[in-house]
Nucleic acid binder design. Structure first.
Length: 955
RNA sequence: GCGCGGUUAGCUCAGCGGUAGAGCACCUGCCUUACACGCAGGGAGUCACAGGUUCGAACCCUGUACCGCGCACCA
């Protein structure tokens, strides 16, 4: 039953999945139909997580890897901790981006999707989904995601589509969805409206100009009103010029008309408070169809908007012939040229202008007046704020009570609340084809509108008279139902009854508003409950230089390459495809760092690395190298330690006597108990980096460096002691397998049955033999009371003793294998230390290479005589003899440094204790602690002084 | 403009009122029968800056600088 010397991640992963699949390990206790699974326990409290559904055409990137690792850690932990864990997987139809992908694919084949027509195009998209739609879910499996794959959902599934229609109608009936002609953000590339959240504006603006254009007065061409604009091409849509009512400069113009340049129209000059006197010339051209602010002013003055653009932002037939059909930027140039020719261009000022761009296409947004559907957000947001314990008084929202939603880290709540407080209506209609078609029908004659989950009766009676709305809904209009709809809502399914509301939502801060806030709205509005209790916001993954990873920069680290490895060419591919400006440099770096490619580290190492780096900051810097440094190193170490445990177990007698626990057995068990407690509290507190570091320290610094090393010697001290040692090794490894499993599920699952069998074969189990067939469903260790802090303190001192002797040997220039005699006497501060030393004398002597290890009640008589060197420590004094060959100069130097350090600390203590203000005001416990420290420093000082003198004397 | 993070060892970060820490990198010595993807040891920091609160500040408060993120935005 010995393990191969090398850890083969791929084989381990394959085996673990076989075991999980056979055991149906990730199926919830209760089936979707409501019946308990075989051997299932419906009394377990549910723990539900819904996956943030990735884009159906997407592939796994590092952000997914991180987020899904975190969810898996949580789900596996709770599943092992006695909860009925259900993790629901699925994908999102991602309207615009999926449509774009397929459209480009058709373009490449020379097919115009519009010519294809709506139905044929949608068929193409479905076909695409059939081919590529499962990729990301398969990739999640590679990660180890313990989803209940039976419940995999897609936002366009029939049930989920029905949920969308149901919500649309419900909100419409409640007056929370309305249709209206509004100025919306328009993407001329995708030819659709977008919500405010889908528009990005560079904080510093983008390079542009401010043009000052003269509008001659209609009644007196010699008088001119000069307006300022950054978008001259929109002047064709002008319906007025507005000035501030109190602006003395323009008072005489109000009520008159100006001639609109380049056209034969005249437009009125109006007065409106919405004009900023200081900006530009103080006269504002009003283009209601192409600017939201102008639209408001136009409404106030009863002006009729003029739409002058086509869907692709070229100028339409409303403009004079020379400009018709021109793209907006061409039109801008042409308009400026024409204005200049007419002598109407007063000034051009280069200027950074705020420019919105469509998040997906990157194209500059155009404002466009159009009929759209909106969700009235204010009532929904108010309700969500109240559900979080916020209260409104005097127009101000303040946090008043706990509320039903907890953010981790907590600071995100305020960001969330701020957005809710300033919320605006949500544009939900999209002029694309791929998505949920709006369940509204318009009467061809009367313009009446009917909505319905199913086709309304009137429409069925007279289908010719009605047409269904052409638009589809924003993708988020289905995603916001995800926690409900995946569980069957609006049907009263057993799943919905049992698993909703869900427990935790883990996601990226980037979709806090898009998704999290809206899910809360939908949950509260439709079920009266928040869809989850905890929201965890994970850090954003950055590259090693702190830039956000993105396809277009080619700086992403591919999780699958991390798991399975990649050749040099494969590593270079993303950069070559993205062709960023620093491509050459990036390629050089890759070549330098991984000349022969990257060796895969396996999913466990990937996960461990991500967990280890997942701290409360909002960023996580990553590079390929980190996965070697952190994950692979640790997992290799763990693998080898496991090998040692298996070797040890198989080397002992199958039965026979077993010795009682030695001090180091009790110590490592105590440490294991402390580690268990710490891992649990870190997991409970969403402190993933903490989970990683607690496990790392225990496995490496306690188990490998000390217990295993001591065990080596102890294995040779007779069959009964060997059996005891093997039993402890196996038992502690078993504990580690459990604690580590949520983070590194594959290797732990693979080792689990082997350890059980090995221990069984040698009859070494005690009360902790695990019964479950798979580790994934075994019991997570309890934070039991086995920890012995005083023993841990004494053991820490023992470690310092061994280290001190090693240092001394190195300082003195003695060979590492030179054995030294050591005598030790405990200090009053650390009672029981001598007993501990005696209790594990042989293995400690072997570990530290001591020729003997004695304990003394008093200082040795010969201490004053030549040859003995003291080791000074707060917990003990020890002596050794270095022999003739020793070079004492380095020893002297170190003793000098130690003296200075102790003296400094002692002085600080004395200063503090001499200050009556400290003694009077500080916590008495702190004062007492200072006194104790001072006593310890003082005695160490004395001993070090004596030692220094003694070393001097010997030179 | 408003808000939120960050600034601690060469690098990546932890620590968040009472002895400045880890990993990597670096230096020295070791192929010691789990592991050289290793072991043992070592050096390395005015905790961004300036004030304040406190007996005591890396930690709390105020301000400044720089980096990052978000929201809003005057045509």
């Amino acid at each position: 039953m010995n393990l191969p010397p090398r850890f083969d991640a791929e084989a381990v992963e394959r085996e673990a999945w076989e075991r999980w699949t056979r055991a149906r390990a990730f199926e919830s206790e209760v089936d979707p139909e409501g019946a308990p699974r075989p051997g299932g326990d419906p009394d377990r409290e549910p723990f539900t997580v819904v996956i943030p559904p990735p884009n159906v055409t997407g592939r796994l990137h590092m952000g997914h890897a991180l987020n899904n690792t975190i969810q898996d850690v949580l789900v596996r932990y709770r599943r092992m901790d006695g909860r009925d864990a259900l993790w629901v997987p699925g994908t999102d139809h991602a309207g615009i981006s999926t449509q774009t992908v397929v459209r480009k694919h058709l373009d490449a084949r020379g097919v115009d999707y519009r010519a294809l027509g709506r139905e044929a195009f949608i068929e193409q998209v479905w076909a695409w989904r059939e081919r590529y739609g499962g990729v990301i879910l398969e990739q999640l499996r590679k990660l180890g995601a313990s989803c209940d794959f039976r419940r995999t959902r897609f936002t366009l599934d029939e049930g989920l589509s029905r949920a969308v229609r149901r919500v649309f109608c419900a909100l419409h009936d409640r007056g929370l969805i309305y249709r209206g002609k509004r100025v919306v953000n328009w993407c001329p590339v995708d030819r659709t409206a977008l919500s405010d959240d889908e528009v990005e504006t560079a904080p510093e603006g983008e390079p542009g100009h401010l043009w000052s254009i003269a509008y001659p007065l209609a009644d007196d061409p010699n008088e001119r009103l000069v307006v300022a604009t950054t978008r001259p091409e929109t002047l064709f849509g002008d319906v007025a010029v507005a000035v501030h009512p109190d602006d003395e400069r323009y008072r005489s113009f109000v009520g008159r008309r100006v001639r609109l340049p380049l056209t034969d129209r005249t437009i009125p000059v109006i007065a409106d408070h919405g004009v900023e006197r200081e900006f530009g010339t103080g006269a504002l051209k009003i283009t209601p169809a192409h600017d939201p602010h102008d639209f408001e002013i136009g409404e106030r003055h009863g002006l009729t908007p003029r739409n002058v653009m086509n869907e692709d932002a070229s100028l339409n037939r409303e403009v004079p012939p020379p400009f018709r059909g021109l793209d907006r930027f061409r039109a801008r140039d042409e308009a400026v040229r024409a204005l200049e020719a007419e002598g109407l261009l007063e000034a051009v000022t280069p200027r950074r202008v705020p420019l919105g761009r469509a998040q997906r296409s990157g194209a500059p947004i155009e404002y466009r007046l159009s009929d759209q559907w909106f969700v009235r957000m204010r009532p929904l947001a108010d309700r969500a704020l109240e559900a979080s314990g916020w209260e409104k008084s005097g127009g101000e929202w303040t946090k008043a009570s706990e509320g039903g939603l907890r953010f981790h880290p907590a600071r995100w709540e305020r960001v969330y609340a701020r957005w809710l407080i300033g919320i605006r209506d949500w544009t939900i209609s999209r002029q694309i084809w791929w998505g949920h078609r709006i369940p509204a029908w318009h009467h061809r004659e009367t313009g009446e509108v009917r909505v319905g989950v199913d086709t309304p009766p009137e429409v069925r009676r007279d289908p010719e008279a009605w047409r269904q709305d052409e638009d589809v809904l924003d993708t988020w209009f289905s995603s916001w139902l995800w926690p409900m709809s995946t569980l069957g809502w609006p049907e009263e399914t057993p799943d919905l009854a049992r698993y909703y509301p869900t427990s935790v939502l883990s996601t990226d801060k980037g979709i806090l508003f898009f998704w999290v806030a809206r899910m809360n709205f939908a949950g509260l509005e439709m079920t009266g409950r928040l869809p989850y209790r905890d929201v965890y916001i994970h850090p954003t993954v950055l590259d090693e230089r702190g830039a956000v990873m993105s396809k277009s920069k080619g700086n992403g680290v591919d999780p699958l390459a991390v798991i399975s490895g990649a050749s040099l060419d494969e590593l270079k591919r993303p950069v070559e495809e993205a062709r960023p400006s620093n491509a050459a440099e990036l390629l050089r770096r890759i070549e330098r760092a991984f000349p022969s490619g990257f060796e895969g580290v396996g999913a466990d190492a990937l996960r461990f690395t991500l967990v280890r780096l997942c701290s409360e900051g909002q960023e996580m810097r990553l590079s390929l190298a980190k996965f070697h440094e952190i994950g692979r190193r640790f997992l290799t170490k763990f693998w080898n330690a496991s090998r040692f445990v298996f070797l040890s177990i198989s080397s002992v007698d199958a039965d026979g006597e077993i010795a009682g626990p030695s001090p180091e057995d009790r110590w490592i068990r105590s440490r294991a108990a402390s580690c268990t407690r710490d891992v649990r509290s870190a997991l409970d507190g969403f402190d993933f980096a903490g989970v990683g570091s607690v496990l790392y320290r225990f496995v490496r610094n306690d188990f490998c460096d000390w217990y295993v090393e001591l065990a080596k010697a102890r294995m040779r001290t007779g069959p009964a002691a060997a059996r005891r040692t093997a039993a402890t090794l196996g038992s502690v490894l078993n504990r580690v397998l459990h604690l580590l499993h949520p983070v590194a599920p594959f290797v732990t699952e693979m080792l689990y049955p082997r350890l059980r069998a090995a221990m069984d074969a040698r009859t070494l189990w005690e009360e902790d033999r695990p019964g479950a067939e798979v580790l994934a469903r075994s019991r997570f260790p309890a934070a039991d009371a086995m920890s012995e802090p005083e023993l841990e303190d004494r053991f820490a001192a023992l470690r310092r003793l061994v280290t001190a002797v090693r240092k001394l040997r190195a300082d003195a220039g003695l060979p590492p294998d030179r054995k030294l005699p050591v005598e030790v006497r405990e200090s009053p501060e650390l009672p029981g230390f001598a007993a501990l030393v005696e209790g594990c004398r042989a293995p400690v002597a072997a570990l530290g290479r001591f020729s003997r290890l004695g304990t003394l009640a008093e200082a040795p008589a010969e201490e004053a005589s030549a040859g003995a060197i003291r080791i000074v420590d707060p917990g003990f004094v020890a002596w050794t003899r270095l022999g003739e060959a020793a070079d004492l100069s380095a020893v002297r130097k170190r003793v000098g440094a130690q003296r200075r350090r102790i003296a400094k600390q002692a002085a600080a203590c004395r200063r503090r204790l001499a200050d009556h203000r400290f003694v009077e005001r500080a916590d008495p416990a702190v004062v007492a602690a200072q006194r104790t420290r001072l006593a310890s420093f003082a005695s160490q000082e004395d001993r070090l002084t004596a030692l220094a003198a003694q070393l001097e004397a010997r030179s």
